[in-house]
Computed example of a mutant assay.
Amino acid sequence: MDKIQLKGCRFYGYHGAFSEEQTLGQIFVIDCTLSVDLKKAAKSDDLEDTVHYGLVFETIKKQAEQKKYKLIERLAGAICQDIFDGFAPVEAITIRITKENPPINGHYDAVGIELERVRE
């Protein structure tokens, strides 16, 4: 299956299990891969024959910046549902959400989750 990728999308949001996270907020890095049949677009050179990744970015941004969840798993699930609802050609989604500065005492680059969803 062909892929459309959005990598390293950065958003400031208020998601987290701790009250400090929901009050102070933090940066969330989101990578999203969409499985889409791109054969028609590869021949036609027409935006109508693909999924407009700028609109997908705005869909992700809306959830990441305007909503508030305790779990990034829930944030990822909500983003997947919005993408499936708004973009019929998307057959599957892999989404990764990373927190670079979670409230964990220790040394690490980042923590995060990855979901894989297939259209039902």
Rank of each mutant, 00 (worst) to 15 (best):
L6D: 11
L6P: 11
L6E: 09
K7C: 11
C9H: 10
R10P: 03
Y12A: 02
Y12S: 09
Y14L: 12
Y14N: 10
H15P: 04
A17P: 00
E20I: 13
E21G: 05
E21I: 01
Q22T: 09
Q22V: 02
T23S: 15
T23I: 15
L24W: 12
L24K: 14
L24D: 05
L24S: 06
G25N: 03
Q26C: 02
I27W: 14
F28S: 05
F28E: 10
V29W: 01
I30H: 13
I30K: 11
D31V: 08
T33F: 02
T33Y: 05
S35L: 06
V36I: 11
V36C: 11
V36R: 09
V36Q: 00
K39I: 08
K40M: 05
K43L: 15
K43F: 07
K43I: 11
S44A: 11
D45Q: 09
D45L: 04
L47A: 10
L47F: 12
E48L: 04
E48G: 09
E48P: 00
T50N: 12
T50W: 10
T50M: 14
H52I: 02
Y53I: 03
Y53D: 10
G54H: 12
L55F: 06
F57D: 00
E58W: 01
T59F: 02
I60Y: 11
I60W: 13
I60T: 01
K61T: 05
K62V: 01
K62A: 08
K62C: 00
Q63G: 00
A64S: 07
A64Q: 02
A64L: 12
E65L: 00
K67H: 11
Y69E: 09
Y69G: 04
K70Y: 09
L71V: 03
L71N: 03
I72M: 07
I72H: 03
I72D: 10
E73K: 09
E73C: 06
R74I: 05
L75K: 10
A76Y: 06
G77V: 01
A78Y: 03
I79Q: 07
D82R: 12
F84T: 04
D85N: 14
G86Q: 08
G86H: 11
F87W: 08
A88Y: 09
P89T: 05
E91H: 10
A92V: 04
I93P: 13
I93T: 09
T94Q: 12
I95E: 03
I95R: 01
R96W: 08
I97D: 02
I97Y: 09
I97G: 07
T98R: 15
T98Q: 14
K99W: 06
E100N: 13
N101D: 11
P102L: 02
P102F: 07
P102Y: 13
N105T: 12
G106S: 13
H107F: 12
H107Y: 14
Y108M: 13
D109P: 03
A110R: 14
A110P: 13
A110K: 14
V111Q: 05
I113Q: 06
I113P: 03
E116A: 12
E116C: 04
R117M: 12
R117C: 04
V118C: 02
V118Y: 07
V118H: 03
R119I: 06
R119G: 07
R119T: 08
